[in-house]
């Protein structure tokens, strides 16, 4: 048998994981730009889309394909240390999915994104004129603190994005492992026989997407009926939020 015959190509990352990942990549600069240029109405819309995607990814981490599930890649510090020690040897067992360190990075990035969209729900601008959809449920001072945190968490996200990209470059150069390719195509070729990931059916992704977008829309409406009236019960706005800045 030649080496070629032994390699196995499997679907490593399912379509939902890849779509969500690249949507994050596209939406982050858009969120930065809209915030920077005072286009806060657009910022809110994109932010709520981001929130929907984060909710989707969290749920998909419970019911999605095996490589998407938190249970399959969230490991303790001992596993991370063992992975780091084994990194130098070339004859280590192939890891199908996130390695223990990469799993931590997923948790950090998703956690930061989750914190960021949550803060954004309550944030407000300097005048308290343009504000997130749940801003009216907290005081001015609380909202100001959360707005400041919204700016701080953005910097943390930037930091982790840099770490993320540096790690990808490290694997590419030092370990000759292309991480970007599989995140685009979903496929990865392994040099030896491995247990292929279980890929969740697409209908399940659609159900989860419906749940996630319902949550996002509900929050964008101000959490009716408790936080706000439903849009169809709302009197017309006398003061447009952009009209008096």
């Amino acid at each position: 048998m030649t080496i070629e015959e032994q390699t196995r190509t499997v679907i490593l990352w399912d379509l939902p994981v890849r779509l969500v990942h690249w949507a994050f990549v596209g939406l982050m600069p858009a969120l930065w730009w809209t915030a920077r240029n005072g286009k806060l109405d657009l910022h809110e819309k994109i932010g709520m889309t981001m929130l929907g995607l984060v909710v989707f990814r969290l749920l998909w981490g419970v019911v999605g394909s095996s490589t998407a599930r938190f249970a399959s890649f969230v490991r303790g510090p001992a596993a991370v240390m063992a992975y780091l020690r084994g990194m130098r040897s070339s004859d280590s067992v192939p890891i199908v999915g996130h390695n223990p360190l990469g799993g931590l990075s997923v948790i950090a990035l998703l956690g930061l994104l989750g914190a960021q969209v949550t803060l954004g729900l309550f944030a407000q601008d300097t005048d308290g004129i343009f504000s997130g959809p749940l801003n009216h449920l907290v005081s001015w001072d609380t909202a100001s603190t959360m707005s400041a945190a919204h700016g701080l968490v953005f910097n943390l996200i930037l930091l982790f994005v840099v770490v993320h990209i540096a790690a990808i470059a490290f694997y590419r150069i030092a370990k000759r492992d292309n991480l970007v390719g599989p995140m685009v195509s979903g496929r990865k070729r392994f040099a030896e026989s491995i247990v292929a990931p279980r890929i969740a059916p697409l209908w399940r992704a659609l159900v989860i997407a419906a749940i996630a977008s319902t949550i996002a829309v509900w929050l964008a409406w101000g959490a009716p009926p408790w936080g706000s009236p439903f849009p169809w019960d709302k009197p017309a706005d006398v003061v447009d939020e952009q009209s008096y800045m």
Binding site: T126, D127, S131, H136, W140, S228, P229
Partner: peptide, 15 residues
Amino acid sequence: LGKAMKGVMDEFKKP
């Protein structure tokens, strides 16, 4: 003024 504006607008947004 900003706080008071928010105070009013918040009530408008509540059920």
